[in-house]
């Protein structure tokens, strides 16, 4: 290790500047803007104190938006956290052949643009001629209008995000699964432990740090990825039925031109994320052994 502060700083300078300008400055600017009323175009801004926060908390909208967010996160946790967890166990410990084939194949959708995924699923869910409606018709059911009905719209959006994220989450989880020593599992099997017991007593505790990482990115990335299908397909509709804490930040800024409310929502979203991250780090730092 070399001790030369100024040299180290020279190497860090480009990244540091970019992070400060494009990641940390916006956080402070949001806090500042959230106390003003402005429409992004007018040359003057009006200081309004906490009015923006107040109007968010008294509106009926917040409850709906919050519920939509929780519902979306809930579906994503099942499809992109629980499912990859189980699949990584199967892939890492229950089969012996074709592992690298499954790994490569299941990761593949993660390389595809969400804009492409949105187009494909828009056709898939098309209520008149789409593949899903034909399957439903053939068993005597009528296809709902997936992107036009409350609740259903969130499920449909979630499947698009899940399709993209599943593979990435799976292989991250798989890395932790294969790090669990095979001998440990063999020993348990010799004592006639069932797969479930092995999963619960050995796998679960040994993979929990990575599981928490996957849990976090499922929430954080899921809400990020959501922007593309929601904007391309529903624009938050029907009647804000597919909007959520993250999308509404965009809506208030670029659709309703109320920067103050957008910034206030951004601050609230940030607090929501900080709570998740702090919970994660508190838990993980106790369990993870860092090298060096």
């Amino acid at each position: 290790m070399h001790k030369s502060n100024w040299q180290a700083w020279l190497f860090l300078l480009p990244a540091t500047l970019l992070f400060l300008i494009f990641f940390y400055r916006p956080l402070i600017e949001n806090l500042y803007l959230s106390f003003f009323q402005w429409n992004m175009i007018s040359p003057t801004m009006k200081f309004v104190g906490i009015t923006n926060y107040h109007s968010i908390f008294v509106s009926a909208e917040l409850l709906k938006i919050f519920f939509n967010t929780i519902f979306l996160v809930f579906i994503l946790l099942i499809l992109n956290f629980v499912l990859p967890y189980i699949y990584s166990y199967i892939l890492g410990h229950l089969i012996t052949k074709m592992q690298s084939f499954y790994r490569s194949a299941l990761f593949l959708p993660s390389t595809i643009s969400l804009a492409v995924a949105s187009i494909i699923f828009l056709w898939f869910y098309n209520p008149i001629a789409g593949p899903l409606s034909i399957i439903l018709n053939s068993i005597g059911l009528e296809s709902p209008r997936w992107f036009k009905e409350d609740g259903l719209v969130i499920i449909a959006i979630a499947t698009i995000i899940a399709w993209k994220s599943f593979g990435y989450n799976l292989i991250v989880m798989l890395a932790a699964m294969v790090a669990v020593p095979k001998e440990l599992i063999e020993a348990a099997k010799l004592e006639n432990a069932s797969n479930w017991i092995i999963f619960k007593r050995i796998i679960l505790p040994m993979t929990s740090p990575t599981a928490l990482y996957v849990f976090t990115i499922t929430v954080v990335f899921g809400l990020q990825y959501m922007l593309v299908p929601v904007n391309m397909i529903t624009q938050g509709g029907p009647n804000q039925g597919s909007s959520n804490l993250v999308y509404i930040v965009y809506q208030y800024a670029f659709v309703f031109f109320q920067t103050g409310k957008s910034a206030a929502f951004a601050v609230l979203t940030m607090i929501f994320y900080v709570v998740i991250l702090v919970a994660k780090y508190k838990f993980i730092d106790k369990k993870v052994h860092y090298e060096n």
Partner: peptide, 18 residues
């Protein structure tokens, strides 16, 4: 603090950066 930026939600950044 550099790694943490990975978790900053993108919508929070768009208006100030815009």
């Amino acid at each position: 603090s550099m790694l943490l930026t990975f978790f900053i939600p993108f919508t929070v950044l768009i208006m100030p950066n815009y």
